[in-house]
């Protein structure tokens, strides 16, 4: 399980962030001792850090620079400072991403996921049972045949696959689609899901995507 360190002085936010990360299958750790933040970071040795810029007693940008001197751990700046200059500065100090509060929690998770994916630098090929899913080429295949998924179908399928076994809300799917510049509406989402189901049925996975009424979908 990946450890994500939360550097945030607002208790409600840090607790809810931890809650969010834990629910998404990460291990959220809240930094408590701001006085010795650098030593703490070293001790915890997280896989990723969510770092707020405005922390009393602590200059987020300075912390960022210091961490960067010693490690390449991915860092996402999470801040209420909505300014281009701050973003450019943070990125130049070596932050991997910059998100402003209030952010959409699903987006935050997508960004975290994107960073891990980029780091692992896998050849991007996923598997679902005996199926090979290649998002880059837009295809799913088994030994016998190969089907093309549209961009939207692929976004939906990979999101479900990533959260396999968990309920995925329509809102989560919509967020991921919109995040990929596919501004589709509710009807289009229905159409895409039913097409995806048809394609999975072709491979023999008839009820792979189950509808949970009022909650969302689950990939079995």
């Amino acid at each position: 399980m990946k450890n994500i360190l939360i550097v945030e002085d607002d208790k409600v936010i840090s607790d809810e962030l931890k809650n969010l990360l834990d629910n998404a299958g990460y291990n959220g750790i809240i930094l408590k001792d701001f006085d010795n933040s650098l030593e703490e970071v070293k001790k915890i040795n997280p896989d990723l850090i969510l770092l707020d810029i405005n922390i009393p007693k602590l200059n987020g940008e300075l912390v960022l620079q210091k961490i960067r001197k010693e490690s390449n751990v991915p860092i996402i700046m999470v801040t209420s400072k909505n300014s281009e200059a701050d973003e450019v500065l943070s990125m130049s100090y070596g932050a991997d991403d910059y998100i402003t509060k209030p952010y959409n929690p699903t987006i935050l998770l997508l960004r975290i996921n994107a960073i891990f994916k980029r780091m692992e630098n896998k050849n991007d090929v996923l598997t679902y049972n005996n199926l090979v899913v290649d998002p880059k080429k837009g295809i799913i295949k088994n030994e016998k045949k190969e089907l093309i998924l549209t961009k939207n179908e692929m976004i939906i399928f990979t999101f479900l696959l990533f959260n396999r076994g968990n309920i995925v809300t329509r809102d989560d799917l919509m967020t991921d689609l919109w995040n990929n510049n596919e501004y589709i509406n509710d009807n289009a989402l229905n159409v895409n899901i039913s097409r995806l189901r048809t394609k999975l049925t072709d491979f023999g996975y008839e009820d792979a995507i189950e509808t949970r009424k009022g909650q969302g979908y689950i990939l079995k």
């Binding site: 409600v12 936010i13 962030l17 209420s80 509060k101 209030p102």
Partner: peptide
């Protein structure tokens, strides 16, 4: 923005 962010998360 902090309470707004907390509420979104909650």
């Amino acid at each position: 923005k902090l309470p707004l962010a907390s509420m979104n998360l909650i």
